[in-house]
Computed example of a mutant assay.
Amino acid sequence: MVAPKPDAVAAEPTPPNVERGTRLANALFGFGKQQASFAARMSKTGMDRSAIVLLKSLLHLGPSRSRALAEAIHSDPSTVSRQVAALVKDGLVERRADPEDGRASLLAVTDRGVRLLEEQRARYALSIARMVAHWEPDDLDRFVELFERFLVDHQTHLPTLITECAAPARSEGET
């Protein structure tokens, strides 16, 4: 099966597709609640979800300015700045001089931060593998293929999702 091009998403969905979208949104909402519960429990063990998101994003971006990191994770720069300060203090991120502007600094994941991410990912992968061990291999392969496709489409469509799903701020005319 060939994946449709992202442009194919632009058409208005049919009622059956809206129903499918509702089912998927409900499933994702349930998954989100489970992930939030998981994150809350992990944070009690010293593994803060926001720290992991920042580390993974920074590792993917490479050495970056704080503002670029905030944009990449769709967050407020002041929030990211506070979170980064904690990661620097913990030795997971370091500040480096920006070769293009000596007044600015770049953030980079340290070797310790990389090891922490690798260890966390290995533990998570093993746990997920145990969870789906009873699945038929072909079913699991197909699920992973479709889920990866969904994630690409989600990332591409994320700015539109944010615009369409965010409630208007009071400053935007809501009384």
Score class of each variant (00 low, 15 high):
Asp153Lys: 09
Leu87Val: 03
Ala122Trp: 00
Ser105Pro: 03
Arg41Lys: 15
Asp90Asn: 05
Ser171Lys: 11
Ala104Leu: 14
Leu151Val: 08
Thr175Tyr: 07
His157Glu: 04
Glu12Leu: 13
Gly46Thr: 09
Ala3Phe: 13
Ala51Cys: 08
Arg49Ile: 10
Ile52Asn: 08
Leu61Glu: 01
Ala11Ser: 11
Phe143Trp: 10
Trp135Lys: 00
Val132Tyr: 08
Arg41Gly: 14
Lys56Arg: 15
Glu174Asp: 11
Thr14Pro: 01
Arg149Trp: 11
Ala97Leu: 12
Leu54Glu: 03
Gly113Lys: 04
Val9Pro: 04
Glu118Gly: 03
Pro4Asp: 06
Arg112Met: 08
Tyr124Ile: 12
Ala129Ser: 02
Leu116Asn: 00
Thr22Ile: 12
Asp111Thr: 14
Ala27Ser: 15
Val93Gln: 03
Gly113Val: 03
Arg96Cys: 13
Ser127Asp: 14
Glu118Cys: 03
Arg170Pro: 06
Ala166Tyr: 05
Ser78His: 07
Thr163Trp: 05
Ser57Pro: 00
Asn26Ile: 13
Glu12Trp: 10
Pro13Lys: 02
Arg142Phe: 04
Pro15Cys: 05
Thr79Ala: 07
Gln155Arg: 14
Gly21Met: 03
Phe29Leu: 15
Met131Gly: 12
Ala169Ser: 13
Leu161Lys: 02
Gly46Ala: 04
Ser171Arg: 15
Ala129Phe: 05
Gln83Leu: 11
Phe147Lys: 10
Val80Phe: 00
Leu117Gly: 06
Thr110His: 02
Ala97Tyr: 05
His154Leu: 14
Phe147Glu: 04
Glu164Met: 14
His60Met: 06
Gly102Arg: 14
Arg82Tyr: 02
Leu107Gly: 09
Ala25Cys: 11
Ala166Leu: 09
Arg65Ser: 04
Phe38Glu: 05
Pro99Asp: 01
Ala86Tyr: 10
Gly91Ser: 02
Ala68Tyr: 06
Ala68Gln: 07
Lys5Ile: 04
Leu161Met: 04
Ala68Ser: 06
Asp139Lys: 11
Glu71Gly: 02
Pro4Asn: 00
Ser37Ala: 15
Arg149Gln: 12
Arg170Gly: 14
Arg170Leu: 12
Leu158Ala: 07
Thr45His: 14
Ala133Glu: 11
Pro13Ile: 05
Arg82Ser: 05
Leu69Ser: 06
